[in-house]
Amino acid sequence: MALKEHLKEARNRLFKSAIAVVICTVLGFLIYEPVLEALSAPVVDINEREGRSAALNFDTAGSPFDLMVQVSVFLGLILSSPIWLYQLWAFITPGLKTKERRISLSFIGVAVPLFLAGIFLAWLILPNAVRVLTDFTPSGFSNIITVSVFITFVLRLMLAFGIAFLLPVVLFGLNMVGLVSGRQILKAWRITVFLVCLFAAMAAPGADAMSMFYLAVPMLLLFFVAIGLCLLNDKRRARRTAIREADVAANADQASSLEGL
């Protein structure tokens, strides 16, 4: 297509993505209160189950509205992720070959569930992370937590887990396009384990070891699964290369025989 048609296509794709985000953000407004109640439940449990004083507070008059917008937009981006990811794929797919289209579509099909799985795992460990972190509060002190700070902590936790679950998919994608081989990754497994633990320590928003553990273990499992898939893909690529070379050699021999006649 001409440049003008490309820009028009990009505009249409962005418009559809924006509409999806806006609609899902409106849905986020509708479910804002139950979501906020679920997010604040770990802090409420500190008062009810452990007998310690903890509360979430707004520090300005406009903070409740700002928080509602922030959480609703975050929910809108998550809920609409299959739509805007598809629009991105639909925009770039005309310039791809058939094999590249299958790879990109498979990438999106795997990346979205893994990203959501990472967010769901972060949701599961959130109560434990809050409990462990507030256990460091000295006796006689209270945890008066600003809501904006707490929500930022929760969103960082979820994004860290979601992005971490995408890294093995990126690794396998690099192998699919031939930029890295499974053997190269396998030889560096010690460095990989170290880097995963380092990333988990930096990405986990809390100072507790459990958050790092909950993030590092699934990442390591996914990385080794990705390495296994890379090795299988390397073997399949090697077989195809061998068959192609054998066909070329056979055709060359046949041509030589015909020339001899």
Rank of each mutant, 00 (worst) to 15 (best):
A2K: 13
E5N: 07
K8H: 12
E9M: 07
R11K: 08
N12H: 05
N12Q: 07
F15K: 08
F15W: 15
S17D: 02
A20Q: 05
V26E: 02
V26D: 02
E33H: 11
P34Q: 08
S40I: 15
P42L: 14
V44F: 14
V44K: 13
I46M: 15
I46W: 15
N47S: 08
N47H: 07
R49I: 04
A54P: 01
A55T: 13
D59G: 04
S63F: 10
D66I: 15
M68A: 08
Q70G: 09
F74R: 03
S80V: 07
S80P: 13
P82C: 02
I83C: 10
Y86S: 10
Q87R: 05
L88W: 14
W89Q: 09
T93L: 10
T93Y: 14
T93W: 12
G95P: 09
L96K: 03
T98N: 03
T98Q: 05
K99S: 12
E100P: 11
R101T: 04
R101H: 06
R102P: 05
I103L: 12
S104P: 09
L105W: 11
L105D: 02
L105F: 03
S106M: 09
I108V: 15
G109C: 07
F115C: 00
G118E: 10
L124K: 06
I125T: 00
A129R: 04
A129N: 04
L133P: 01
T134C: 10
T137H: 05
T146R: 07
S148H: 05
V149S: 00
V149M: 00
V149R: 05
F150S: 05
I151D: 02
I151P: 02
T152D: 00
F153N: 02
L155V: 15
R156W: 07
R156Q: 01
L157Y: 00
M158L: 11
M158H: 00
A160T: 07
G162E: 01
V170A: 09
G173V: 08
G178M: 03
R183P: 01
I185K: 11
A188V: 06
W189K: 11
R190A: 06
T192F: 01
T192H: 00
V193P: 01
F194V: 03
V196M: 02
L198M: 08
A201H: 06
M202V: 06
A203W: 03
P205G: 00
M210H: 11
M210Y: 15
F213H: 09
L215Y: 14
A216K: 11
P218H: 06
L220C: 08
F223I: 15
F224D: 03
I227E: 08
L232R: 12
D234L: 08
K235V: 06
R236N: 13
R237N: 14
R239W: 05
R239S: 05
T241F: 15
E245G: 03
E245V: 13
D247Y: 12
A249N: 09
A249Y: 10
D253Y: 12
Q254D: 06
S257A: 11
S257P: 01
G260S: 10
G260Y: 12
G260V: 09
